[in-house]
Each structure stands twice: as C-alpha cells, then as structure tokens.
Amino acid sequence: MTPKQKLHRARLQENRKILAYERRYTKIILTALNEQVKQAIDSRGSMSDQPMYDALAGLYRVVAFDFVKHQYNLLDRRLKTKNVSFFINTWRTWIEAYVFTELAKKVADINETTRNKVREAISIGLDQGLEWDKIAKLIQDKVGTLGKSYRALMIARTEVSQAINMAKTKSSDDWEQETGERMYKIWIHRYANSPRDWHLALDNNIAIPKEQDFEVVNPKTGTREMMAFPHSPRASRENTINCSCTVMYMSYRFAKYLANNS
C-alpha cells in the first residue's frame, strides 16, 4: 500500500469516528439547550451553565481521550516504544485539567447567545405589559429555535473538532518526547455544505514541519492568520465556528514518501 493509500484509509477511518461523535453529541447538546430554555421560563429569566458544561465536559473526556490514543497508535505503527497504556494516566490528567480550567469560559461564551435572546424576549414582553405566560411564549419563540438541531450540530461539530485537534497535538508532543523524531503535519478538510474555500485549499497532502504554522488566508476579507492546527486557541471565530477540519501528524519519513508518491 502506498503512503497516499495509507493516508486515504486513515482519513476515512477518522471521518467515520468523527461523524459518529457529532451525531452523538448533537443529541446531548440539544437536550442541554432545551433544558436551559426550560430553566429560563420556570425561573423567570435565570439560566444555569451546568447543563451545557456537563454536555461539553463529557464530550471532551470521551472524544479527546479517544483521539489522543488514536493519533499515538497511528504514529506507533512503524516503531514500538512504550505501550500506549504508559500514557493513559497522563492523558486523563491533561484532559481533566482542560475541563476544569478552560471549559467554563467556553461554556459561558456559548450560553451568552442564549441569555441575550432570553433577555430580549423578557424586555419586549415587559414593554408590552404582558403576563409571564405570554412572556414565556416569547422566550419559546425567540430562544426555542436555538434549541433545534442545527445549533446543536454546530456546537457539536465545533467542539468535537477542537477536542480532536487538541488531543492529536498532545499525542504528537508525547511521541516527539518519547522518540526524538521530528514530526510533520497536514491539514485535513472535511465535507461541509458551505465549505470555507481557504480551508479546503490547505488540504493539499503537502506535509509541513510541525513547528511551522499553517497560513490561513480568507480571500474574501483579506484576513490572514497563522495557525498551528485547525482550532488553534489563538484563531478567530471566523476560522473555528462550525469548522470540522482536523490535523494529522506524521513522521518525516512518511511525509517524504507522501511527497514523492503523491
């Protein structure tokens, strides 16, 4: 099997896993969104971050852990060093640290959209002198659409992809430290109904050194960002929201074969 064929098979395998996770967590996130709308109505405006936090904490614990192992195993096919079980506790600790330190900020940002709609509905209702049951109907009309499948899917797709890219990068870091081998990477664009053409252009099977950033340029706006990988923490919302691109790390040897046989 040629390097190009191996890469194609790995991409198909990953895509199946990602699609399954997107479907699974779309349902879980939809439940969280609907629970928050119910809270806002029952408590006359108050809404907890907890349902969304619990949904995304579960997502990161499962998806990140799966893909940190998956990427390491892909790298480990050519050279066996320490068994993947050696890193299990380290990876779990790393994921928990993210869940407890960074996830709350992300959840607050996601929930602010819902809160703004709730406030807007209440303000309109009060200005019109409506009773609470009528205001509740306004909340359902304005916020209920946010609880439908599209927004849940958008959140799931964004967060699954971020979890995957973080996990793959962590795994490649551990691989480098374990083997001393220089790593390369490629950008992988997944299918989308309205693809970002500038992301699609980066999916060219040309591997670059891991330490080198991808140059991400939106020709429509002229915006230029240097990203270590899709969903890089310093990237703008323009390049992350509803993006399902991923990175794949590989050895120099595989990158060279890929370049020579593509």
Results as ranks from 00 to 15, higher is better:
residue 188 I to T: 08
residue 232 S to A: 13
residue 197 D to V: 07
residue 241 I to V: 13
residue 229 F to V: 00
residue 208 I to T: 03
residue 228 A to D: 13
residue 188 I to D: 03
residue 217 V to N: 03
residue 195 P to H: 09
residue 198 W to L: 05
residue 195 P to C: 05
residue 210 K to A: 12
residue 228 A to L: 14
residue 226 M to C: 08
residue 186 I to Y: 04
residue 200 L to N: 05
residue 198 W to V: 00
residue 193 N to V: 05
residue 238 E to I: 15
residue 194 S to Y: 05
residue 195 P to Q: 04
residue 240 T to V: 11
residue 198 W to Q: 02
residue 226 M to E: 04
residue 200 L to D: 05
residue 208 I to N: 08
residue 229 F to M: 09
residue 209 P to D: 10
residue 194 S to Q: 12
residue 200 L to I: 04
residue 226 M to W: 10
residue 201 A to F: 08
residue 210 K to N: 15
residue 205 N to Q: 12
residue 180 G to L: 07
residue 209 P to I: 06
residue 185 K to I: 00
residue 203 D to K: 01
residue 195 P to E: 03
residue 231 H to Y: 03
residue 229 F to D: 04
residue 188 I to Y: 07
residue 189 H to P: 01
residue 227 M to L: 11
residue 199 H to D: 05
residue 222 G to M: 05
residue 183 M to I: 04
residue 233 P to Q: 08
residue 189 H to E: 12
residue 238 E to N: 15
residue 196 R to V: 04
residue 204 N to C: 11
residue 233 P to V: 11
residue 185 K to E: 02
residue 210 K to F: 03
residue 224 R to F: 05
residue 198 W to R: 00
residue 234 R to L: 13
residue 218 N to V: 01
residue 232 S to W: 15
residue 193 N to H: 13
residue 189 H to N: 11
residue 237 R to E: 13
residue 218 N to D: 15
residue 226 M to P: 04
residue 215 E to A: 09
residue 227 M to P: 06
residue 195 P to W: 05
residue 235 A to G: 11
residue 217 V to L: 08
residue 226 M to Y: 11
residue 227 M to C: 11
residue 231 H to E: 00
residue 180 G to C: 10
residue 204 N to D: 13
residue 203 D to T: 01
residue 182 R to C: 00
residue 190 R to Q: 02
residue 184 Y to M: 11
residue 196 R to A: 01
